[in-house]
């Protein structure tokens, strides 16, 4: 049984992705699924994903495709992260959401664990 949290990163600045890759590889309970760009690439891997971290300009506008992913994957958590400041919002089933501030790679990792543990219901 796979107990690690599987993480997919999408549309974040490359330099941030490089740092997160290093940081997540060091966490035994986290599994790095990859870094992708755009909805087509996300759709290929999202079925195996527990937490999708998606870089966006506005965390308050959930992209249309995310509704589809959340409807089809009850356990999926989506963390929208702004690329211009520290704001983030975690979305999960039935459009529950939880506002966060990500101020370091460590706080992002803590947030991943926190939102993963949220009940899907």
């Amino acid at each position: 049984m796979n107990t690690s949290i599987r993480i997919l990163i999408a549309d974040l600045p490359e330099v941030v992705v490089e740092m997160l890759d290093q940081a997540i590889q060091q966490q035994p309970d986290l599994e790095w699924l990859g870094n992708v760009q755009g909805w087509e690439e996300i759709a290929v891997t999202v079925a195996q994903t527990d937490v999708l971290i998606l870089g966006v300009e506005d965390v308050y506008a959930l992209p249309e495709a995310c509704f589809y992913f959340l409807r089809n994957q009850p356990n999926l958590k989506i963390l929208l992260l702004t690329i211009t400041d520290d704001e983030a919002i975690a979305y999960w089933r039935a459009l529950h959401c939880h506002q966060l501030q990500i101020t370091s790679s460590l706080s992002l990792i803590e947030s991943i664990r926190q939102i993963y543990s949220l009940s899907p219901f």
Binding site: V15, L81, T84, D85, I102, T103
Partner: peptide, 13 residues
Amino acid sequence: SHSHLLREALARL
């Protein structure tokens, strides 16, 4: 930068 994450990434890398 306004983004702590980007600052950390640039600084570290």
